[in-house]
Design a protein around this nucleic acid. Sequence first.
DNA 1: TTGAAAGCGATACCAG
DNA 2: CTGGTATCGCTTTCAA
Lengths: 340, 340
Amino acid sequence: MVTIKELAEILGISRGTVDRVLHNRGKVSPEIREKVLAKAKELNYQPNRAGLMLALRKQPRRIGALVTSVGNPFFDPVIEGMKMATSEYEDIGFSLALAEVKGFDRSTHLEAIKHLVEDEKCDALVLATIDDRMITDYLANLTLPVIAVNSDISLPSKLCYVGPDYYAKGALHAGLLALAGEKKRRILILRGSEAMKGHGDIVRGFTDTLVKKGIDATIAGEYDTSDDNELSERIVREKTAEDETINTLFITTAGVSGAVKGAAGRNLLIFTSDDVPETKNLIRSGRIKWTICQEPFRQGFESVRRMQSWFIDGIKPENLCTQHIVKLTENIDSEYLSSI
Amino acid sequence: MVTIKELAEILGISRGTVDRVLHNRGKVSPEIREKVLAKAKELNYQPNRAGLMLALRKQPRRIGALVTSVGNPFFDPVIEGMKMATSEYEDIGFSLALAEVKGFDRSTHLEAIKHLVEDEKCDALVLATIDDRMITDYLANLTLPVIAVNSDISLPSKLCYVGPDYYAKGALHAGLLALAGEKKRRILILRGSEAMKGHGDIVRGFTDTLVKKGIDATIAGEYDTSDDNELSERIVREKTAEDETINTLFITTAGVSGAVKGAAGRNLLIFTSDDVPETKNLIRSGRIKWTICQEPFRQGFESVRRMQSWFIDGIKPENLCTQHIVKLTENIDSEYLSSI
DNA sequence: TTGAAAGCGATACCAG
DNA sequence: CTGGTATCGCTTTCAA
């Protein structure tokens, strides 16, 4: 509750000097430095956010965000969240530069990131990108703060990760499958690109947990559908024709409607991940039994907000693991866009 | 992006006058008033939050909160959320007065609320209370802003409600029960006090949905356990002895460990609401198959935060329906205290 | 190396 | 009814 001004008065020095000590800028004599630090600690000095924000607007900050939203409606609420967080602080000089790309090609991603840094002159990066050396090496050589959102990257200097634990998500799918009965399972899996580590983690979490729980299940096959509906449809149709024992379909990627079409006429238990519009109707009708969402709005909101806090009060943000929200017919229509 | 100062300069009048117009306080000549409003709209004037906050600390605000937390660990994270929201803005003069009571006795609640208003001199109320005329009549005669949290109240003047849709929660339980197999169900229900409307709504949502989905299920009985473990245990033991066809136990209240003890030796499918510590171990071990949580931390955080926003920028907050989080063994240990 | 002062946006109060 | 001014906490810049 003590302010810089009060601290200065108590110590009989000027506010400027106290400020210089507390922020390690400029030269201050060691004795005064010690005295200030001691007193600040004693009186538990905490900077006032309002004052901080007011002074901060002199140096506008641009936050660059990369999302693989092209052709993937999952990212729509993520972007909404980012914009919402930006609008809360735009009057103190924060702005958002959005780079939207399609898929997981590393050159495309690198190019988009370079655009944010070089053309948009961003002061910070919030990235939903792939964990590739070409990209992390480039980022490691920048001095910009980076937050990973939705999919984590191996960058020691990153501030934090905001997004789901994909392995746990796969495990939860297995838990639901166990709940759904002791029937013998033969499972066909449609998954997303290997380039994005999370896609593999979901499947691993799923299969590991099936084994751990001793569930009577086997995997009939695991295919990357490249988020393509026609490909998904063909795979499901062919595989279920080849192997009549397949009774379960696990779709962890886009291309859901194609896959479901391919399963027409067959009595499969189907479950998916996320509640993109394509999925919603199929959950409502009961054709898809459940889906597990991952708070996309919050991912966007929190990633940008954490970057803002980093600039405002310099506290290194902690990782945020978003919740896994199980959705059935009964709750598919509840709001995903919580108004925070 | 335009400020009051700029507005004043453009119009050739003082900042004080602009301020008076924009806040409807003090007297201003109609012509000037019109001019100011027109210009403000034209230039899309938005108050700057930093400036607002800085000026606001001159009038400290005390927010009074009532929670039925005594003997009910569900409210622990709610309180944490309230404290977290308070700490974010305490440097601009917000403080929290917490009144903790046990159970749903209306006189106890009214007394606690009066204490907040009269003794603690609170400027606003955030209440987890019962929807009783004695209480709402008292509140209606106050001029303080009120937000209902966790359980809604019939108070026309309340700003908003933050908490779950209990009926939907019951429906989701029914959805999960349907997922768990087509077995014929005979269900024993343990529920909380009628005084709290939500308790009844859960059961209604549950039974309505069982019927709607055409599930082969009957209710063996529905009992208020008063959150008491010994009573729960006795009821479960007696009822399951009387009626050997009972194969399902739905516990929507505290006293979970007692109820589970009473079910010892019997092969019941058990499910509950919320993940209080008492429940956690039983979910881990698989004795309880699932529980549905309701973001308690967020309820506390958002209710207080909404009240703060009401004071800071005067925007009437919207209702917030918290999500229903299905928890199985696989995700019972993921964090409930999301750091927002 | 340190002090003093201006400025950020909004409010409150005192004069006129 | 209106204008002017001090104030809030912090940063930054200019002098000393």
